[in-house]
Design a protein around this nucleic acid. Structure first.
Length: 446
RNA sequence: GGCCCUAUCGUCUAACAGUUAGGACAGUGCCCUUUCAAGGCGCAAAUUCGGGUGCGAUUCCCGAUAGGGUCACCA
């Protein structure tokens, strides 16, 4: 066997905004491929745009990568802003070799810039996801590679850094296809080897255009999802499957799974819409997993008022109720202001007529049903099971809806809620009796 | 507009010439059930359109159409 060159991939964010979900996907694929091949995954900060680059954004990216569990192998984090002397050396050589020149400008910010002398040739490069791509560089003209000798622009620095860091595979978004011939031209001029390219399909907004901060706002940044209570596992699973498939019907994949199965041949060529509904589903799946592992604790989510004067069992019941209706961690957070659940801590307000089951017009009957339940509740020593049994027996005789609906409504004041027996347990006898009494009073007014 | 890329259910996708075109999310129906949620079982839903080449095209080729990307002294 021949000795394969070790693989080196990279993720080079520009710290001009918070980490973008499209970039997360790109980082993920670079990471999968490097890890799969025992290669090296490098993160480098592309901050040549001094005006727009900010330390807070860099921190945001690094923290988010860590949160996702994406670790990089380089010991020092390269900042392009600190490498001016290196780029200058290349620039001077390029100029000396006649491959670039200082060009006087009549437009733009600077009077002079450095332009690359375009040989005007056709470049064909092999793309791991698209096959051969041919582009005529004549259309590019003599493009700018530096604002001045101390301020190179992206196209130059990306090529130099990829070269100096020994990047073997450039895996990036499809929006870079048109930049690739430019980069290849520069590589050839500085004598750098050509890396292997793979251009990933774009992550699209529901309107089918590239997800962008300008057009699509906060939904492009990872923070948005993180703050809403999406789990890193769910985000990785969802993004890992955007534009990639395993070839079988499996839906749930961990980072380790992706590293195992990643394959350029299974990458889609067309862009993929970021469908939040599917993300929600993944998140729910991972929340179930967390719960099963005992890692979701009610006390972290239920406000004190909901826990006060409740037994362990009641708290668990409440939490489960909330849990099965939740898609994100935030959905779990129940506070006094939550209209969905605050009926548990304060008596509900509602119209008396709402107590009547559909088709029912006899308020007296409904009152009688409620009285039956009240009596049972007042009987000391009866277990919850016995109570439920006797009420259900009664309800079956009188019509389940006629008995259970008003009971549930009296307790919750809501059209939709958990069943009355669960509510009875959660509220306790005293509060339940109070609410039943209120309901009976309301019914008298009908 | 030039150049480049792409094209299977609404969405993410499977099928690398022969399948009743499969799965998942969303939707919808039924069951469970007083209501909701959860759960179970169903249903509906796609090969953009023309031409080729094959005994046979979702699959290969060409064209049209549509969508997207890119045309910065941003990355």
């Amino acid at each position: 066997m021949t000795n394969k060159k070790p693989i080196v991939t990279r993720f080079p964010p520009s710290p001009t905004g918070p980490l973008h979900v499209g970039n997360v996907r790109t980082a993920l694929f670079n990471y999968f491929f490097a890890r799969q091949n025992q290669g090296t995954f490098i993160v480098r900060i592309e901050d040549t745009d001094k005006a727009r680059s900010k330390k807070e954004y860099e921190d945001n990216m690094l923290n988010n990568l860590k949160w996702l569990g994406i670790s990089y192998d380089n010991e020092v984090l390269l900042h392009q802003s600190t490498r001016t002397p290196i780029y200058k050396k290349y620039l001077e050589k390029l100029i000396a070799d006649g491959k670039a020149y200082v060009s006087p400008e009549t437009e733009g910010e600077n009077k002079e810039v450095v332009r690359f002398k375009n040989p005007n040739i056709k470049i064909t490069f092999a793309d791991l996801v698209r096959g051969d791509v041919t582009i005529d560089t004549t259309d590019l003209g003599d493009f700018i590679i530096a604002r001045n000798i101390y301020e190179p622009v992206y196209h130059l620095v990306v090529v130099i850094d990829d070269f100096e860091q020994g990047i073997t595979h450039v895996i990036r978004g499809e929006d870079h296809i048109s930049n690739t011939p430019r980069h290849i031209l520069i590589q050839e001029a500085i004598g750098a080897p050509r890396p292997i390219y793979a251009h990933l399909p774009l992550v699209l907004a529901p309107d089918r255009s590239k997800l962008s901060k300008r057009k699509h706002g906060e939904m492009v940044s990872l923070d948005y999802y993180k703050e809403l209570g999406y789990l890193p596992e769910a985000i990785i699973n969802f993004l890992g499957l955007l534009g990639f498939n395993s070839g079988n019907d499996q839906e749930l994949f961990s980072m380790a799974d992706f590293i195992k199965i990643f394959d350029f041949n299974k990458i889609q060529k067309g862009g993929a819409i970021f469908n939040i509904e599917k993300l929600k589903w993944f998140n729910k799946e991972y929340m179930k997993k967390l719960y099963a592992e005992g890692k979701l604790r009610p006390e972290n989510y239920l406000a004190e008022v909901f826990r006060k004067n409740r037994t362990e069992e009641q708290i668990k019941t409440l939490f489960l109720l909330v849990f099965e209706r939740a898609s994100t961690l935030n959905d779990l957070k129940i506070t006094e202001e939550n209209p969905e659940w605050n009926f548990l801590i304060k008596n509900p307000e509602y119209e008396a007529t709402r107590l009547l089951w559909k088709g029912e017009s006899d308020a007296k009957q409904t009152q009688k049903h409620l009285s039956f339940v009240a009596e049972k509740l007042q009987k000391k020593g009866a277990s919850k099971e016995e109570l439920k049994e006797s009420v259900m027996k009664y309800a079956e005789a009188k019509g389940k809806g006629s008995v259970l609906w008003p009971l549930r409504y009296a307790l919750s004041g809501k059209e939709k809620s958990p069943d009355p027996f669960t509510l009875l347990n959660l509220l306790g006898n005293e509060k339940s009796l109070e609410r039943i009494q209120i309901a009976k009073t309301k019914l008298s007014s009908l």
